[in-house]
């Protein structure tokens, strides 16, 4: 192994520094959402109903908690799949005896499941965005629309990047098979993926649940 001052891999230090930086990125987005909460001049609003004084049209609180709870659950489970994918890559050399061992040890399966869960989450988000637009909330409509779509859109873009990263790893796995030597590459992707997940944990509570 190449000498490093801490004995750690350069890439892992860089990815953690990157995650630290992302904390400030999402801090800015979440702060803006919270600062503008309740400051929109016109509806629709996240939770409360609003009647348009010009047309008399009633807009109900727009957030769909059951649907978002489902997508939140899918994203949480994707984190489980991701740790299993990493463990499978780390334990490539360990002999598998039972069917259970072989399933748990399949990095292709778990990378695929993680990417699938991420894509499902994005599907939920696409559904959510289109139904909001149909209900009259666009990114231009009011402050809530601007801050909501920008914040969750940024998160969705991070999920998209993560899915592409996972699919790249999956392609490498199919092409030549990931080995324990690739642990660091998968670990970096996993750290990024979990970070995107914890950001959603914060968003789900701060934006969807707290009224």
């Amino acid at each position: 192994m190449h000498y490093t001052a801490t004995g750690l891999d350069n890439r892992k230090i860089a990815i953690w520094a990157f995650i630290g930086s992302e904390c400030m990125l999402f801090m800015s987005l979440i702060s803006t959402y919270l600062i503008y909460k309740g400051k929109s001049v016109v509806g629709p609003f996240p939770h409360e109903a609003w009647t348009d004084p010009m047309t008399g049209r009633v807009f109900h609180g727009i957030l769909d908690i059951p649907v978002t709870s489902a997508s939140t659950f899918v994203l949480l489970m994707s984190s489980l799949f991701m740790v299993l994918a990493l463990a499978a890559v780390q334990n490539k050399h360990v002999p598998k005896h039972t069917t259970g061992d072989r399933i748990l040890g399949s990095s292709r399966l778990w990378l695929f499941m993680t990417a699938l869960a991420g894509t499902t989450f994005l599907g939920f988000q696409a559904f959510e965005f289109t139904s909001f637009v149909h209900e009259g909330l666009t990114i231009r409509r009011n402050l809530f629309g601007s801050t909501f779509f920008t914040l969750t859109g940024f998160h969705g873009a991070h999920v998209t990047a993560g899915v592409l990263w996972l699919l790249t790893l999956l392609a490498i796995d199919f092409k030549r098979g990931l080995t324990a030597a690739d642990e660091m590459v998968v670990d970096m992707c996993a750290l990024y993926w979990h970070f995107v997940d914890v950001v959603w944990i914060a968003i789900f509570t701060l934006i969807y649940l707290i009224r």
Partner: peptide, 26 residues
């Protein structure tokens, strides 16, 4: 590690190089 090592060492098991710059092992 040996401070006199003249060059970084790539782990030969990397059939395909990793998605990063470092050659540090695992």
């Amino acid at each position: 590690a040996d401070p006199h090592t003249p060059a970084p060492v790539i782990d030969p098991s990397h059939a395909l190089p990793p998605a990063g710059e470092s050659t540090a092992g695992h």
